[in-house]
Write a protein that binds this DNA or RNA. Structure first.
Lengths: 143, 143
DNA sequence: TTAATTGCAAACACTTTGCACGCTA
DNA sequence: TAGCGTGCAAAGTGTTTGCAATTAA
């Protein structure tokens, strides 16, 4: 089970432990970025006892190896993590229920190049988040 | 001196104190977003003794009244604050020296509307930050 | 005068770290 | 079996809060 996750760990030179595969698996399955605390809770509820600091350490090292991605959303105190599928992504965040939609689509086009020309920066990347209200919240609250 | 800042405070129903005008003044003068700690240090060095918690409280209330804006940049632990000139802004952050350029220009065009159509969200706003290396850092480090 | 503002110290939330033990390769 | 991985408890960082004293309106 989860041979591909074990392979990922091995390829990164990381030992294969049940905590690591569990975390990778949860992140891969989840369509939404999750917090360390959420992972911690999910693991405990699946009878994979683990310490919060291990979750943090594991997330750290998985980020370092670029198996997962760390992000934060404006105003959010906690860091979020998602599986790294190597696609350029943005996020659409519902201000009502806080659900996060991942958008694999980028409206920037050649804007980075234009801005580079204007500012003489070399531009290496960008982060775009959009905010609004999801259909459910719009219905419920008449936004 | 700084009659317009006092007027801003008054208009927002806030009492006029030297801490508040000092913070507004520093933010208005600064072309870059700054942290609470930086403001705290600047005030002390200008012989305006103040407590850090007062700085935080003041920043909070000025944000609430929309006289200033709070932001965080990806990976940055500390919150940043800038004077609110009521323009739509983005930020270009130098990964070398951490300097932040404010960009009063938005490449999104009607993307919000398109995305709203696609996702059935009502989209209320967005946040875009760009990353790279400024001319100085490029020169020094051959990025 | 009196309600808003401040200083101080303590609390907070999230995250990181040191160390001893346990387990993978 | 060597060294990476983990649990535990303690520390760290940025920010917030309760309360009594101060100050602007």
């Amino acid at each position: 089970m989860d041979e591909h996750l074990k392979a990922l760990l091995q390829k990164s030179g990381l030992k294969n432990t049940k905590h690591r595969t569990a975390i990778l698996e949860l992140l891969e399955q989840n369509d939404q970025p999750v917090t360390a605390e959420q992972l911690y809770a999910e693991m405990r509820s699946k009878n994979i006892p683990v310490n919060l600091s291990t979750v943090y350490r594991t997330l750290d090292i998985l980020c370092e190896k670029e198996l997962i991605t760390k992000l934060t959303i404006e105003g959010g105190a906690k860091a979020l993590f998602e599986f790294n599928n190597n696609l350029h992504r943005h996020h659409l965040i519902c201000l009502g229920c806080k659900k996060i939609l991942t958008i694999e689509n980028c409206p920037l086009g050649d804007y980075e190049q234009k801005l580079a020309g204007k500012t003489h920066f070399s531009i290496t990347g960008h982060k775009l988040d959009l905010y609004g209200f999801c259909p459910d919240c719009r219905r419920k609250n008449e936004f």
